[in-house]
Simulated assay, not measured.
Amino acid sequence: MNIRARRRHLAFTALAVCTGLCGLLSGVPAAAQDYPSKPIKFLVGFTPGGSADLISRFVAQKLGERLGQPIMVEQRLGATGIIAQDAVSKAPPDGYTMVLLTGGHPTSAAMKKKLPYHPVNDFGMVSTIIEYPMAIGVRPDSPIKSFADLLARAKAEPGKLSMSSAGIGSLHHLLGEWIKIESGTEMIHVPFKGAAPAYTELLGGRLDVFVETMTFLNVNFKNGQVRPLAVSSSQRLKDFPNVPTISETLPGVDPTSWLGLVVSPGTPRAIIDRLNTELRAVLAEPATAERFAQLGGVPAPSSPEEMRSRVQREIDRWTRVVKLRNIERED
């Protein structure tokens, strides 16, 4: 091979190597660097005015500002969020369609015989966003004075006291069932379609025990409309230092509700990492903590792996509760 041919061969080889390396190095990172280049769709599977809807809109605005593209909130109602979640589970894996998972997502997985998606593998987990405890209360004139008193009365008169939930299979319902398992008590489960009708029945004296999220009960505890008995957080709440946690009486019973951001499965990790980084920045803002406090919650950033582990762990927990209480699973 003469000198000119050898130089030409070396040049082609160098070009091929450079092209290969550039392709390897620029593939996924380039997608992240270019992302987002158009508006993002944020599906909301819950009714307007609820905590999931309010948080979705707050996060959409703040996150969109950081990403430099508008995040368009779109209502996709039905089946307690399952329709919206299914749409995201089957959307293109490009980071342009997102949805919230809620603390009710693991309970749905435990209660449903079949879902249109795998509750863990069919989502690209980004991060949890907010966490807020469940709480147990009674009307102000109730003879039940404390959580310990509630359990004592339930043991003394099995099946007499009534306890609300937001529906069969809801987090509220399964928390009540978990309490029964750990305390060896029996109380009547009364499902309602939302907090408002249960609250009306409580104040009317037709319901003994009210189980709800702090999103609803925060204000009602403060204004004295509901007497707090216990909260499900692992630690007592700063605003209610005299209200014990459930786990102080029943160790390990400390489930909290939450909201978390997910995208389609197969979304490049670089895009997920970009969303996680910007979302963490939003959650670190004082205005976010202030807004979340108004809803009875706190910012709860996580890694994608931590969120995925949490979802799986809670599915396992609620599946155990469903089995132990012989709760009929839904089609």
Rank of each mutant, 00 (worst) to 15 (best):
S170D: 10
T277E: 06
L250S: 13
G103S: 06
R325K: 12
K160P: 08
A289S: 10
F42Y: 11
R291G: 09
P241M: 06
A156H: 02
S146F: 14
Q69A: 15
G104N: 09
V138K: 08
G260L: 04
A156Q: 03
P244Q: 10
I181D: 14
A156W: 03
Q235H: 03
A293F: 00
V120Q: 13
N121P: 06
E182T: 14
P286S: 04
Q235T: 03
K193H: 02
L217S: 13
N220D: 14
N220R: 03
V209Y: 11
P304E: 00
T277N: 05
L261S: 14
L237N: 05
V138D: 14
T213D: 14
P228S: 08
D273P: 12
F240N: 01
K38E: 13
P268W: 04
D94F: 02
F210I: 07
T19E: 01
S170V: 02
I130T: 01
R76K: 06
G27S: 13
G20E: 01
S146C: 12
E182W: 10
G104C: 03
T97V: 07
P116E: 13
A91V: 09
I130Q: 12
L150G: 04
R269S: 15
V243M: 03
P29I: 13
I181V: 14
V311W: 01
V17T: 12
A31V: 03
K62T: 13
M1G: 10
D331T: 01
G260T: 05
L203W: 11
P244A: 13
C22I: 11
L207Q: 06
I82R: 04
R269V: 13
A154Y: 02
S234T: 01
A32S: 07
S142K: 03
K180F: 06
A270L: 05
T245A: 07
G169M: 05
V17M: 08
Q312A: 14
L10A: 13
P265L: 12
E65W: 00
P244S: 09
V226E: 09
T80G: 07
W318N: 05
P92M: 09
K62C: 07
P197C: 02
G50K: 00
I130E: 13
L100A: 08
L229V: 15
G252Y: 06
P197N: 01
H118S: 14
V190Y: 02
P29D: 08
L174P: 15
R274M: 01
R8D: 06
L279E: 13
L275K: 06
E177R: 04
G64Q: 06
A109V: 07
S303T: 10
A87M: 11
A84D: 02
K112M: 15
K113L: 08
S165W: 11
A198L: 09
D273G: 11
A79D: 04
L174V: 05
S257F: 09
D122H: 12
W258A: 05
G184L: 09
L24G: 13
L217M: 15
K41D: 15
A293E: 03
F42I: 04
V28S: 00
V311P: 00
K193T: 10
R153G: 05
R313S: 12
L115N: 07
P36T: 00
P304S: 05
P301M: 02
T107W: 14
D86Q: 05
E328C: 04
V226T: 09
L324R: 02
E131P: 15
E212R: 11
L25Y: 06
P36N: 00
F123H: 07
H118G: 15
F147Y: 13
G169Y: 10
T256Q: 10
